[in-house]
Amino acid sequence: MDELDKDCLFCKIIRGEVPSYTVFENDDVKAFLDLSQVNPGHTLMVPKKHLTNLFDYTAEDAEKYLKYIPAIANAIKKFDPKITGMNVTTNNGESASQVVMHSHIHFIPRFEGDGLKIATRNNEDKYTPDDYQKIADQIKAQF
């Protein structure tokens, strides 16, 4: 537990200093109910290492922590037969609405007619094939 931050809320949850409703835990990750419960079963999965967000992950971190996503998603889906889908999301940085600065994955169960809207927008009319290619090439150059 020496890889945890003393002031981070999620690190405190991992250490047991703040109570949580744990649904899964092992040496690598802890998954617990989000108190906001956007929909019943809304769960957060956090690595048991203080990483601010996905931008801090090494390939080894990703291999170690993200491999649990399918198992957690499936366990949540199985808990309620009315679940018809799931949003699996992460907010990386304040501009992406990250509130707790410890990497976490949201599992938000979806139900037919639940009325929940995940806001996106379609800007396709603002891009030409050349614009798309330029953006793709610039990103590709970063690998």
Rank of each mutant, 00 (worst) to 15 (best):
D2Y: 10
L4N: 12
L4S: 11
L4P: 14
L9T: 10
L9G: 06
G16K: 08
P19A: 04
F24M: 13
F24P: 01
E25M: 00
D27C: 06
K30G: 03
A31F: 10
L33Y: 11
D34H: 06
L35C: 06
S36T: 13
S36K: 14
Q37F: 05
Q37G: 06
V38P: 00
N39C: 10
P40E: 03
P40A: 02
H50Y: 12
H50V: 09
L51K: 09
D56H: 13
Y57Q: 08
Y57T: 13
K64W: 09
K64N: 08
Y65K: 07
K67V: 15
Y68M: 01
Y68V: 02
I69L: 11
I69P: 09
I69Q: 01
P70T: 01
A71P: 03
A71E: 10
I72C: 11
I72S: 07
A73N: 07
N74L: 12
N74P: 01
I76F: 07
K77I: 02
F79W: 03
T84H: 04
G85K: 09
G85Y: 06
M86W: 04
N87K: 08
V88T: 12
V88D: 06
T90V: 11
T90E: 09
N91L: 14
N91E: 10
A96Q: 07
A96Y: 01
S97W: 13
Q98S: 15
V99G: 02
M101P: 05
S103C: 14
S103V: 06
I108Q: 10
F111C: 02
F111W: 00
E112T: 09
E112K: 15
G113W: 04
G113C: 08
G115F: 08
G115I: 01
L116P: 05
N123K: 12
E124V: 15
D125A: 15
Y127I: 02
T128R: 00
T128A: 05
D131C: 02
Y132N: 03
I135D: 02
D137N: 09
D137H: 03
Q138E: 14
F143Y: 15
